[in-house]
Design a protein around this nucleic acid. Structure first.
Lengths: 145, 145
DNA sequence: GTAAGAGCTAAAGTTCACTTTAAGTCAAGG
DNA sequence: CCTTGACTTAAAGTGAACTTTAGCTCTTAC
């Protein structure tokens, strides 16, 4: 009752080529038939769901492979294993949400006050704050004083 | 009192090569010195802030170029112009925030109940919901019934 | 006036996450 | 048995967003 690559692709909503790619990258695993075709355990669907979720949160496949390495090898992960993994994403998720909300609030306040041309507006003068901080998206994640 | 490419790069927190790239892509504009070097109006810093913000929300540079085309040509955009642009991002931003929150809640509930191996759990059986919906990240954005 | 560092261009290179291609093999229904 | 559609591989291609390289030129401080 194992799944072929096409069945997994259909159910998971991605292309067979993506599954082969994930396997080459060490993210998922398959058994083979006598003739060399892939056969997947149903558990791979949950694994793929986790991979896609992690990607949505902003993790690279490298990050995800590292995280999956913390799952017990050679046995099917338990609910507790998955829970531990989910939990480790929580802070990242919180940060992403907070950042989006800050951006939204900032856009809102600037729309509301029409201040975009004024010196005092955070949006209109991001560079003065940004210049002093490392690389990356600086002005958006600046803490309000 | 115009800015050189290096000054803009420093203040905006990106590389000079990125500024040249943005210019080639039609996102920003520069004047030139007699000798052919770029000189930027201070306004470019705000424009760059907008571009980076839009990227954070998930827009491609193509999307952003299109959005910027709605700004009045040949004159410095007003506060109202920027406000209109910001406003158009609001729905996208809201959707992204909602999606992140849904993912967080779902992970939380699955951690809390330890249900990951059960048939009733949304996280453990994403494929049954996902299969019926188009391509993309489906299970994460499925509405709760 | 000159040296050093900042800037110029065009073209090629990089990384990520896949997809496409080409040439062939496997599996399952009739 | 055989046809058809799904599957196999390795390697090359894709697109987004830049960066790097090479070989110059410009600007500025001394």
């Amino acid at each position: 009752m194992d799944l072929s690559i096409g069945e997994v692709a259909d159910r998971a909503g991605l292309a067979p080529s993506a599954l082969r790619f994930y396997e080459k990258e060490g993210l998922i695993h398959s058994d083979r038939t006598e003739g060399g075709q892939r056969r997947y355990h149903r558990d791979v669907l949950r694994l793929i769901a986790f991979i896609r979720a992690a990607q949505r949160v902003g993790l690279t496949l490298d990050d995800i492979r590292d995280a999956l390495r913390t799952l017990p090898e050679r046995k099917v992960p338990t609910a507790a294993d998955w829970a531990r993994l989910s939990k480790s994403w929580r802070p990242l998720l919180d940060r992403r949400i907070e950042e989006m909300q800050r951006l939204r609030d900032r856009l809102d306040s600037c729309i509301g006050c029409g201040c975009l041309s004024l010196k005092t507006c955070a949006l209109s003068n991001p560079q003065d704050v940004a210049a002093s901080q490392g690389p990356g998206a600086r002005w958006l994640i600046v803490d309000d004083d």
